[in-house]
Design a protein around this nucleic acid. Sequence first.
DNA 1: CATAAATGATACCTTTGGGTATTATTTAGA
DNA 2: TCTAAATAATACCCAAAGGTATCATTTATG
Lengths: 149, 149
Amino acid sequence: MNFSRTTEYALRIMSFMAMNEQKLYSANEIYANLKIPFRYLRKLLTTLSKSGLLISVQGKSGGYRISKDLSEISLLDIIQQTGDNKFKNECFFGFHDCAFVKKCAMHDKWAAVRENINQVLTTTTLEEIKETGPHSFISNNNSVFTKND
Amino acid sequence: MNFSRTTEYALRIMSFMAMNEQKLYSANEIYANLKIPFRYLRKLLTTLSKSGLLISVQGKSGGYRISKDLSEISLLDIIQQTGDNKFKNECFFGFHDCAFVKKCAMHDKWAAVRENINQVLTTTTLEEIKETGPHSFISNNNSVFTKND
DNA sequence: CATAAATGATACCTTTGGGTATTATTTAGA
DNA sequence: TCTAAATAATACCCAAAGGTATCATTTATG
Ligand code: SF4
Ligand code: SF4
């Protein structure tokens, strides 16, 4: 399935930080582990901070820390912070104004799919992710990018 | 849920044409019913023709017709022609190289979601869509665009 | 056979998401 | 108190998707 790249980044970041939930991570340290393009990572981290999922500490030896209890952060919570407003109650065909005096074949089927997805995303929390680790946190993506900061 | 706009267009086009599966539709006629930006619609129609889902007839009084029996065209068939290669067997987090000596919490859950989606998309054919019509084929999107061709 | 009405091909423009560069601010600690 | 190491803010750049414009080709029909 496909979320936006940004959403995938956010999911990785939060999952990674959940491995040590009290710890204050610097952007450098996250970069070292996740290899997300550094400056973009920086931007994303401040976004996540503003959204309330992370707390940021400025100054030397500053960084980011997860703001709430892991059990209170669902994967959907994370996904919603990065603009991926998928899984809303939309028409399968992308219509905004279907009258459906009689529903088409996809209406209920697709509603069930959405329900299924939402169920998984809202009930799975970072706590569960932490417990079931480890998974690989280094993405190859065989892409090479520079850090220089 | 979100497919690309182009995929949504393709789904609408094919579903609409399925309502009268033998008929030769001109781009003009499809435009009149679906209000997809005209020149983009034209482009898409030739794409669908090249992909084999439609047969095109050139010249005056030409147009497009669905190429196969409706029961042989699944929604997934349509989706796959427009580059939306979603629902592949990918990692939830977007990793390409997870070792998973021990699978993370999302691995099987997400595989089940994908399976669910694929099931719906491969088993639902245009025939079924035709039978369960009508649904609205006019999208408002309150967007105004010109035709001029 | 000329014309009109259709599709085909191709190049270009625009918007958006992803990514980079630069400068400013905060703060621990020598 | 100066410096280094961190985050914050802002503006810019690039590539891909969506959309437009132009011209060429096909063919029914007068
Ligand atoms: S009936 Fe079909 S076309 Fe209408 S809103 Fe539901 S899914 Fe969309
Ligand atoms: S175990 Fe988790 S991280 Fe690894 S491939 Fe499966 S879903 Fe992705």
